[in-house]
Design a protein around this nucleic acid. Structure first.
Lengths: 224, 224
DNA sequence: TTTCATAATTATGGATACAGTATTATTCGC
DNA sequence: GCGAATAATACTGTATCCATAATTATGAAA
């Protein structure tokens, strides 16, 4: 093990996180086999923590373990996407509902600050930054809902979604459309209209999926 | 390892399943520490597959791994229940909605057969059997929804719920009330009223939680 | 030339051994 | 007698080793 490491977190957790990042970065593409031995050598660790990390990722659905066959990055089908997005819409809609009911003025102000950041990144067409802050925006609302399990569930699904190359935001006009939808959501939260916030968030998520379907085939390619 | 075992599934999966059953049977109570070494000796296996099994259970939320402290059976608070039940209600409601839209006459007939079984077990006050078939009833509707992710999500939450001793069905009158609610759900599914099926299932789940809250303190004890 | 069977190689799954850290108990000092 | 510090013990975390199963390659036969 590398000396100087404080090792407060277990090694298998670190390995799991590194693998997650590589999967999310599409460096490890869905379907390919994850070579335990090679990775162990590459990371300079033994196979034991690596195997434990793979078990964790398998439980998250990011990798699929075939007995005696090895670990493979999970492949997500279009049908999976069609099943997951409506779920996400429902769950995030619920978040918006609960968040609206419990929102404090400070929390709303924080959301609006994030929204202004989004506007800036959209104006300068910084899609990467927009993507990050957008995640932060949604995460914040999930936290505001006060329901730990609801938030966890959404995060788990989002991990699975990150397996695919979803660049709905890079589709022409989607960035502005997304911003407009955020304005509506914020408005509903600000005025305390929980049901409207729920509906708008719900439709916002589904609109993301719609943009994907429309832009199918022309999705951006990222050189691994 | 026991000879004669075909061992198609990995050992860690078997161990995980055995531990799950012991946790669900409340043989391993929430909060207690799971002794790796002792269990390894007890099962006649090494610590390696046991540790992998614990990682899986941790991902499911059944056990909590405290770094350098060991594995503990997860403790569920009342607040957790208050957060989980509305979620379950929403998710199972959604299942009922989708199931209604896709229901074939054969599937409906199968549901009604299960319902008749429930009536029999209720009449003879066989709570254990009722509980089992009740699970089957709900699971069937989840499968009918055709959404793999929705079903998985509900099953995951249900696992966590099984950590606690939830015997709402053993509370006086709840058995009959549950049956009545099922009648309503079945009626909605049969007539194709998806929205009504959703609402009724939603309320059915919440009613289970309500019964629990009312019956708090007087919950029945089940040996093992 | 293609297909099937057998053998060899490689990788996964499980066991055992070792090191490091945390907890607990005992002893010493105040 | 009580509290703190140090030492010992026990358990987690990691590495190495071994066995078994799967896959691939090679050779022979059709």
């Amino acid at each position: 093990m590398a000396p100087g490491r404080i090792a407060q977190t277990a090694l298998y957790q670190e390995v799991a996180e590194r693998l997650r990042q590589r999967i999310f970065a599409h460096e490890l593409l869905p379907g390919i086999r994850i070579d335990e031995q090679q990775l162990a050598v590459e990371y300079g660790i033994s196979r034991t923590p690596l195997r434990e990390a793979l078990k964790v990722l398998a439980a998250e659905g990011l990798v699929t373990l075939r007995p005696r066959r090895g670990a493979f990055v999970t492949e997500i089908s279009d049908q999976d996407l069609d099943e997951i997005f409506p779920l996400m819409a429902m769950l995030e809609g619920r978040c918006a509902l609960e968040a609206t009911r419990r929102a404090s003025p400070e929390q709303i102000a924080r959301l609006e600050a994030l929204h202004r950041q989004l506007q800036r990144f959209a104006a300068s067409n910084q899609i990467g930054r927009f993507f990050e802050v957008n995640q932060e925006f949604h995460l914040r609302i999930q936290e505001m809902s006060g329901n730990r399990w609801l938030r966890q569930m959404i995060q788990d699904l989002r991990k699975v979604l990150k397996l695919t190359r979803l660049f709905s935001l890079s589709i022409d006009g989607r960035l502005q459309q997304s911003l407009d939808e955020h304005v509506g959501i914020l408005e509903a939260i600000r005025t305390g209209d929980a049901l409207r916030a729920q509906t708008m968030m719900h439709d916002h998520i589904l609109a993301g999926r719609q943009a994907l379907v429309r832009g199918a085939g022309e999705e951006a390619r990222v050189p691994s």
